[in-house]
Write a protein that binds this DNA or RNA. Structure first.
Length: 962
DNA sequence: CAGAATGAAAT
DNA sequence: ATTTCATTCTG
């Protein structure tokens, strides 16, 4: 809505980011190639790339049905102005934003789905339902068949949507390249994203470079950073927040990186030092003109982490990028830096002498002072914060291991006390990091950074306490860290709380328990951790707030679960009617449930009120993310005042954090959870699911990671985007879903059509057929067949001769109830068979030619004789072909119980039933042969196709013979 | 993780 | 003309 203003944009971006992260988390690297180290054993690497959502590009806009292309464009531009970037930068900003989103993580957006995929997505469930036993492959085949059968008209919707989707996608990612393979230096800075493609490799360790090398060079920084992170911990495990932080860090360090990446050290000390240096350098360098505000300087960096990061790529971009980036991430990063800076300060003052910093020392000192003050405040106010800062340090370890470990301590060193403390923290952190996943870090970090958009620097009345003892803070932090490391977040959390404040009433467990049921898996864990972390942070100050948050989370969880369940049930019914706006319902449900949840939870909802805006935010999740954010922001801003002094700040932070979490971490968690759920779910529910439509569970919710939505359908994406997604989903859902019956009919109709006699095609089909092109249909089919023959390398014949009947049967089966097909089949006369055969051929599996590599076996010698291997293969093929049909038939028979497999007979006497088919095949063969001959002018070397053809030839011949 | 399918894009 | 990769998920 109107919200889509600058801020919203940032929020969107964040969302996007989060999405990406989530995806990353989920997917881990899909390593097709080298599972190499990085890959997670994760079962499914599936999601490498983040899924792009069309709405994303629009952000807040609704995804009106109309072609949004134009609209989108318009919108984008306005939005583009990230923050308040001046005119010139806008475009870049947009780009940067996009890039940022994608690149930083390296994740590249996934390709938009094509019409067929959409179709598959939408119908797969149906297919599965009908054929529970079928594995996906089979389902895919059937789907393909269906798709083939579909009338153009019907297809059109899908194609249109696909197109739309694609367009939107392209808008969102201007430079997107489908095939990143060759990552040549993309000229467009933004395009660099594509360059980043490594997603797979992403996780790979620095050393692995060989493949990546090409790409790697391009993405020096970005690649480096991620790697670092990964190195520290599994990316998959890492929390989105951590990622964000990293981004921030990167941004901050970008300069430094550019200057001397080499210097970076793994150790926290160094990190700190670096940070200091970075800050200093940044301030002076980057913002000479601008106010020395640390925040500002930072801001810019975060904005274009990528750009800056990859100075090599686009040096110029960096400056421009700055303006754009003000995002939560940024803030977080700032926070972190500030905190660190504060710690470091003392050291810095002394250390400043270090060569690098010397010149800017003065400035730095000033900055530091400022930072310090801030830090102090924060520390004092929020012990947690300190913790966060410490947590931040772990990030530093992220620094690429491969990075030459920096000349250690160059500047740092200094105050023994501080140093020691720091060192300890670092060590611990490092340890923690190693042991645990980074998740912990991320959350903490997040909290740390969470400052509201307002300036991080002086939002609160700063109270400077003369010297705070970092030690205490550190202690708490350490405790947490350790706890985390151990894996007992909750405990850690509790401890922290206790220490910081006695507010022990927190019920860490509550939220978890809920989540637990859903997904026992690791993902859950992550979620739990995150949550706890959040709590801990929040709790730091306002116990109530914390409680509120937790509550909300819990509620959300509950709600989600319930909702899901409800939805599921509901969905079944609704399924057929196309998609319907579930949202209202869902919301309602959520609301009610939330209430219920609140009651159930240990903490009374009352607490929430104190929290103020938060509660709403939590509840909102289903609604708009933006709204949530806005609320949060408001809460942060206003809330503070309303509430009381600084708490507001904290609350704000908490809120922000939540938001972040909800957006990013949450999403990821959710996704994971979903996955898990799905599995379980699927098992139980199997059939009810088809409708993706309803799934629309309000995604984003509040900070609850737990929310796992079970929606089996494919909510992941939707969840991430929330409302946007919903819309998208709606659209998707709106796509016509065809009942199997339809297909059956069609298939039959097709048969009819095929039959020479049948003057009238199927009713349903008729129209479209007519529409499509009367002549074209048959012809096309025939042509196709021919083509196939030509192209088909592997087993064109199979289908042609044998399969026909069986395939047909299969087809019909799939579509219709069991009985029918059989009958059809059996009775089917020669004509029918022929027709069927045709169809089958067309539709049949393996339309696509085999890949070369696969094909190899087929190679034939010039004379036509098959090489031994080939021969075998050929045999196999033939057998397979025959078998296949048989099997299918048999299966059908079994399933349906009817029918005596004619196929066996056929096998034995291949010729019999197939007269017609054979005929066709012959004709086709002839055609093909002719074609080939023509083509074959150059016999010099057999092309794959040729070889294939040759290979096929024999089979065909055999058919003919028979 | 391969792989079934189709399509769009890139090479 | 080929190759990538998008989605989904079982073996």
């Amino acid at each position: 809505m109107t919200k889509a203003v600058a801020d919203p944009s940032s929020s969107l971006i964040q969302h996007f980011h989060s999405l990406i992260i989530s995806k990353t988390m989920k997917g881990g690297g899909r390593g097709k190639e080298p599972p190499a180290a990085g890959d997670v054993g994760g079962k499914r690497p599936k999601r490498k790339c983040l899924q792009w959502h069309p709405l994303l590009s629009k952000k807040a806009l609704d995804f009106s049905e109309e072609e949004e292309e134009e609209e989108e464009e318009e919108l984008e531009k306005p939005q583009a102005p990230c923050g308040q970037a001046p005119g010139p930068g806008t475009e870049q900003c947009a780009v940067a934003r996009e890039e940022t989103e994608e690149d930083p993580t390296e994740q590249r957006a996934r390709r938009p789905m094509n019409a067929f995929l959409l179709f598959c997505k939408r119908h797969r469930s149906l297919v599965r339902q009908e054929h529970p036993r079928l594995d996906n492959r089979g389902a895919t085949k059937i789907l393909a068949d269906w798709w083939a059968v579909l009338e153009p008209k019907e297809k059109q919707k899908y194609t249109d949507m696909a197109k739309e989707y694609k367009d939107a996608f392209m808008k969102a990612n201007p430079g997107y390249k489908w095939c990143p393979t060759t990552n040549k230096p993309v000229k467009t800075p933004p395009s660099c994203q594509p360059v980043c493609n490594h997603r797979k490799k992403v996780w790979s360790f620095p050393s692995n470079a060989p493949k990546d090398s090409t790409t790697a060079k391009k993405v020096p920084k970005s690649a480096g950073m991620p790697q670092l992170n990964f190195a520290m911990a599994d990316p998959t495990k890492m929390g989105g927040l951590s990622m964000l932080l990293l981004a921030g860090e990167h941004a901050l360090s970008a300069r430094e990186v550019g200057v001397a990446i080499t210097e970076k050290t793994l150790q926290g000390k160094k990190e700190k030092e670096e940070e200091e240096e970075e800050e200093v350098s940044v301030t002076r360098e980057s913002v000479p003109n601008r106010v020395p505000d640390v925040s500002k300087t930072r801001v810019k960096s975060p904005l274009s982490p990528m750009t800056e990061a990859s100075p090599h790529l686009l040096p110029s971009t960096a400056p421009e990028a700055k303006p754009c980036g003000q995002s939560a991430l940024f803030q977080l990063a700032e926070m972190c830096l500030a905190s660190e800076a504060g710690k470091i300060q003392p050291a810095v003052s002394k250390s400043q002498e270090s060569p690098s910093s010397s010149p800017s020392v003065q400035h730095a000192a000033v900055v530091n002072a400022e930072v310090k003050s801030e830090v102090k405040q924060e520390m004092v106010d929020h012990p947690d914060f300190t913790h966060s800062s410490s947590s931040h340090s772990p990030l530093s370890p992220l620094l690429p291991p491969h990075f030459p470990s920096p000349p250690t301590s160059s500047s740092l060193s200094v105050t023994p006390g501080n140093i020691t403390a720091m060192a300890q923290s670092d060590v611990q952190n490092a340890r923690a990091v190693k042991k645990k996943t980074k998740k912990k870090d991320s959350p903490t970090e997040a909290t740390a950074t969470n400052k509201p958009t307002a300036k991080p620097a002086a939002p609160c009345p700063s109270r400077k306490t003369g010297g705070e003892s970092p030690a205490t803070d550190l202690d708490s932090v350490f405790c947490t860290i350790e706890a985390v490391a151990k894996g007992s977040w909750t405990e850690a959390e509790v401890k922290v709380r206790k220490r910081s404040h006695d507010g022990g009433n927190v019920s860490p467990g509550s939220p978890k328990k809920k989540s637990k049921p859903r997904t026992p898996k690791t993902p859950l864990k992550g979620a739990a951790n995150e949550e706890t972390a959040t709590k801990g942070e929040e709790s730091g100050n306002p116990a109530r707030l914390h409680s509120a948050s937790s509550l909300s989370e819990v509620e959300n969880n509950n709600n989600d679960d319930d909702d899901d369940d409800n939805k599921e049930e509901e969905e079944e019914e609704e399924m057929e009617t196309a998609a319907i706006p579930v949202s209202p319902k869902d919301e309602a449900v959520d609301m009610s449930e939330e209430e219920a949840g609140g009651g159930s939870t240990t903490q009374p909802p009352q607490t929430v009120p104190s929290g103020v805006p938060e509660p709403p935010a939590a509840g909102v999740r289903p609604k708009d993310e933006e709204a949530e954010k806005d609320k949060v922001l408001e809460a942060m801003e206003t809330g503070a005042e309303s509430r009381g002094s600084r708490k507001s700040e904290r609350s704000c932070k908490g809120a922000l954090y939540k938001t972040l979490v909800s957006e990013g971490m949450l999403t990821s968690l959710r996704a994971n959870i979903d996955r898990g759920k799905r599995c379980a779910f699927r098992a139980s529910d199997h059939d009810a699911n088809w409708q993706e439509e309803s799934c629309v569970v309000p995604p984003t919710g509040p900070p609850n990671p737990k929310k796992l939505k079970k929606s089996k359908s494919k909510d992941e994406s939707s969840q991430g985007l929330g409302k946007l997604e919903e819309e998208f989903e709606k659209k998707f859902n709106s796509l016509p879903q065809f009942s199997p019956m339809t297909f059956d009919k069609k298939s039959t109709t097709v048969v009819k059509k095929k039959k020479p006699d049948s003057p009238i095609p199927a009713q349903e089909e008729g129209p479209k057929a007519a529409k499509g092109s009367s002549p074209s249909q048959k012809k096309t089919s025939f042509h196709k067949i021919v083509r196939k023959h030509k192209q088909k390398k592997e087993k064109p014949n199979v289908r042609e001769k044998v399969a026909l009947p069986s395939d047909l049967a299969l087809l019909s089966d799939s579509g219709t109830s069991k009985v029918k097909p059989c009958t059809t089949l059996a009775p089917a006369g020669p004509e029918a068979a022929g027709a069927a055969a045709m169809e089958t051929l067309l539709v049949g599996s393996q339309k696509r030619k085999a890949r070369k590599n696969k094909i190899t076996h087929l190679v034939r010698t010039a004379d036509g004789s098959v090489s031994p291997i080939e021969e075998d293969k050929a045999k196999e093929l033939t057998q397979e072909q025959e078998k296949k049909p048989l099997l299918s038939q048999q299966k059908l028979c079994k399933d349906q119980g009817c029918f005596e497999a004619p196929s066996p007979e056929r096998l034995d006497t291949p010729g019999a039933p197939q007269d017609l088919p054979a005929f066709f095949s012959l004709a086709a063969l002839a055609e093909v042969a002719a074609m080939e001959n023509v083509h074959r002018g150059q016999r010099v070397s057999l092309s794959d196709t040729q070889t294939k053809e040759l290979a096929q030839a024999p089979v065909l011949i055999s058919c003919a013979d028979q």
